[in-house]
Design a protein around this nucleic acid. Structure first.
Lengths: 160, 160
DNA sequence: TATTGTTATACTCTATAACTATA
DNA sequence: TATAGTTATAGAGTATAACAATA
């Protein structure tokens, strides 16, 4: 029985790493992360810092918890990114008067300036990556991501 | 001008992290890696170790350099995975008589047994992840990966 | 001189738990 | 007793360079 090289790998039970989708996701995701990292590092931002800045740039003053939800980072990582961003003067933190456990974060003028500088660069890099895809391929890719994200859950573990 | 929530984000120049494809790749890839990691950890293999075993299980006795090429890991990572696999008795290493700088790696009987045990489990997990995708969606996804991999290169840096 | 592979070191990430302060 | 967020610590992963053996 003939099979083309484009088949998925499960068909005959042979495991071929180069066709294994979680592996391909990992390799491609790492490449993309580094490509974006080269942009954000030009303004001194690590990936977690850029994620936090991006959420604040989009949604304005929100709590750390909102940053946690929107960035898919845990609260420890957010807390550390926030500490670094405070030190470099890109964000402010004030406690929410209505619940003083909460910290409300926002971009400073400098932070907003960085956001406005970096956002278009990262969007251009994304567009570069997608340049060979037709409109239909893109639409399918977005639908596929929705389905995969629903199907592969964010871990059974995180009790917290 | 109306736009649906499914549009890509670049359209109006607003950066929305949750729609930014490198971010979605990163989150989904991490979830997949952990799902596969839960399987390979049951037999005591880390992700790098499993990658090396998978290449040897598929291609038989090959040099460390071949493992480097096929796993997208650098030689340091491969060297360390190999050291751990030697210690746990899953692979053998002998020097290539025709070029004694080269080390030829192969699975032991125990290693082959683990490969045969784990490979179908990971393929089943992959199939689970893809379960909601139509045949057409899958075909498009594979083509899309080919295009993205060609478009997003494996780093300008690695001089070595 | 170049190549195959190993070792050393430092740095970043990740995971977990313990902690403070509020509620 | 629960929640928002911080701090501590240990482990895994990553990056770089220096190195030994061989070609």
């Amino acid at each position: 029985m003939k099979r083309s090289s484009r088949d998925t790998d499960a068909a005959d039970g042979t495991f071929v790493l180069e066709r294994f989708l979680p592996f391909r996701f990992s390799v491609l995701s790492n490449r993309m992360t580094r490509a974006i990292g080269r942009i954000t590092r030009r303004v001194g931002l690590s990936a977690p810092e850029w994620r936090a800045v991006a959420v604040l740039g989009r949604y304005g003053a929100v709590t750390a918890n909102t940053v946690v939800e929107r960035t898919a980072m845990d609260k420890v990582r957010v807390s550390r990114a926030v500490a670094r961003l405070l030190k470099s003067g890109l964000i402010t933190r004030r406690s929410d008067p209505s619940d003083r456990r909460r910290a409300i974060l926002d971009l400073t003028v400098a932070g907003r300036s960085i956001f406005r500088q970096v956002a278009p660069l990262t969007l251009a890099a994304e567009a570069e990556m997608l340049a060979d895809l037709s409109a239909e391929d893109r639409a399918t890719l977005l639908r596929t991501f929705d389905k995969l994200e629903a199907r592969v859950p964010p871990d059974p573990h995180p009790i917290d």
